[in-house]
Amino acid sequence: MDRMPSWIRQHVAALRALLVLTAVTGIIYPLLTTGVAQALFNNKANGSPIEKDGKTVGSAIIGQSFGDADGNPVKKYFQSRPSAAGDGYDPTSTAASNLGPEDVLDTLPVPGAKDEEGNPDEGKQSLLTQVCARSKAVGELEGVSGARPFCTSDGVGAVLKVFPDRAVSVNQACPATPFIATYQGLKVECGKPGEDYAAGRTVPVRGSASTPAVPADAVTASASGLDPHISVAYAELQAPRVAKERGLALDKVKTLINENTTGRALGFMGEPAVNVLELNLALDRR
Rank of each mutant, 00 (worst) to 15 (best):
E271W: 02
G270E: 05
G263K: 07
A17W: 05
G143H: 09
I230S: 00
G58K: 00
E195K: 14
E122N: 13
A223W: 05
G200N: 13
N98M: 11
D87N: 13
Q10H: 14
R166V: 08
V214C: 05
N72S: 10
S135C: 11
Q10K: 09
A39D: 06
L105R: 03
E245N: 12
T25C: 10
A235K: 01
D68E: 04
S222K: 12
I61R: 03
F179H: 01
G139P: 04
T25Q: 15
P109M: 05
I62R: 03
Q184E: 14
Y77L: 12
A13Y: 07
P111F: 05
V20I: 14
K244H: 14
D115M: 13
S224H: 05
P240E: 04
Y29V: 14
A221K: 02
R246L: 14
V20Q: 05
A181I: 11
P240Y: 01
R3P: 02
A173V: 05
E122S: 13
V110R: 14
A95R: 03
L186P: 00
I27D: 03
E117H: 13
P228S: 07
Q184N: 11
R81E: 03
N275T: 07
I180N: 02
D251V: 10
V168R: 02
P91W: 06
K254Y: 07
I180E: 10
A218M: 05
L226E: 01
A218S: 12
T33Q: 15
K252D: 12
T255K: 14
L226R: 01
F78G: 10
G200S: 07
S135E: 03
R264Q: 12
Y89T: 00
A37D: 15
A14F: 10
D53I: 09
G88H: 00
E259H: 09
D70Q: 15
N171P: 00
